[in-house]
């Protein structure tokens, strides 16, 4: 039962330890509390962005604006946090509210406006990216020390980034996804018509999924800000592709309706660490896009082995 449930995440479950071992052979320090902190800090932003993407993919949609929302949150946080506890707290609350609202707006246009998610989020990618540039035209800004170290340091041997991520999973993701509302998100992705006929509120389920995506992207932006201790309006651009890659790699089908959050989270760490491994091995950083894009293509192609092995193309078409 548990095995079946987590089978989609198997690739990431196996891949992550392998890549950490590979990293360890190059950098023995990685298996210390210091190393654990570095590993956690590298992957947590993408893990949160991957969860943001997954919330929407579950409804059989896609959110191309995840990267822009990460950048917008980063720009707002670095510009307005200041030094005082009050201004920082207010900024954090504002970032989370803006992220949720921006996501919900995507959801309203998709669900009520009945426009294809790809068009909506492609357009809002420009809007949120433009807003980020308005807030912070040039890279800069700063964050209070306590905010940066609070999120990126360790508590005992445990990296705070990991604690932050687990808190988000256990306090935000799992309660929502195991509620009636969360079930309806899965149901809408599985079969929208059936969900509607069964009396589920399809519109509300979609809006909540997109709003969650915005909230999680804002959390990713906040963590990224703590990690880089500065702001850059365009810093999020890579997170759209990588969040989709983590979702695919984590065994969540793009057709929606299925998937466990563990898959994309582990896949996000895998994809982040693989870049460090290349770097540690002295391979040109220009390979980063090649490896990430190439890996995604290989996983996508490999995932369709059933289509290739089916003797009847008609069955493939109907799948």
């Amino acid at each position: 039962m548990i095995l079946t449930r987590y089978r989609p995440a198997l690739l990431a479950l196996i891949g992550l330890p392998l890549i950490i071992i590979l990293y360890w052979t190059q950098q023995p320090l990685i298996l210390s509390s210091f190393g654990a902190r570095i590993l956690a800090n590298q992957g947590t932003t993408l893990a949160l962005a991957a969860m943001a993407q997954m919330a929407v993919v579950l409804t059989r949609g896609v959110d191309l604006s995840v990267g822009a929302m990460v950048g917008l949150s980063n720009a707002i946080a670095a510009t307005y946090m200041g030094d005082s506890l009050t201004s920082a707290t207010l900024t954090i609350i504002a970032v989370l509210l803006i992220g949720t609202a921006a996501g919900a707006l995507n959801g309203v246009i998709v669900a009520v406006g009945r426009i294809q998610p790809i068009i909506v989020t492609l357009a809002s990618l420009y809007i949120y990216g433009g807003l980020a540039l308005l807030v912070l035209p040039e890279p800069g800004g700063s964050v209070p020390d306590w905010f940066a170290t609070g999120l990126t340091d360790s508590t005992g041997p445990v990296p705070n980034g990991l604690i932050f991520l687990l808190a988000v999973i256990f306090l935000v993701w799992l309660p929502i996804m195991s509620s009636r509302l969360g079930r309806s998100i899965y149901a809408v992705g599985d079969n929208e018509g059936a969900a509607y006929v069964s009396g589920l509120n399809v519109v509300r389920a979609k809006i909540v999924a997109y709003a969650m995506s915005g909230l999680l992207a804002a959390l990713a932006g906040l963590f990224l800000t703590a990690q880089t201790t500065s702001g850059d309006a365009t810093i999020g651009s890579g997170y759209t592709l990588n969040s989709v890659a983590a979702v695919v790699f984590g065994g969540v089908p793009l057709m929606g309706g299925r998937g466990v959050v563990l898959g994309p989270v582990l896949a996000a760490y895998f994809l982040s660490i693989i870049v460090s491994v290349l770097f540690a091995a002295g391979i040109s950083p220009f390979y980063q896009s090649v490896v990430q894009g190439g890996l995604l293509i290989i996983v996508l192609a490999a995932g369709s082995y059933r289509a290739l092995s089916s003797p009847n193309w008609l069955q493939v078409l109907r799948a």
């Binding site: 896609v62 790809i118 759209t240 592709l241 989709v244 890659a245 695919v248 793009l254 896009s289 090649v290 990430q292 894009g293 190439g294 995604l296 293509i297 996508l300 192609a301 995932g303 369709s304 289509a307 290739l308 493939v316 799948a319």
Partner: peptide, 15 residues
């Protein structure tokens, strides 16, 4: 491979 073009071409672009 029957992958949706949205993801496949996004990956091609990165590659």
């Amino acid at each position: 491979f029957r992958v949706h073009s949205l993801v496949w071409t996004l990956a091609t672009n990165a590659l």
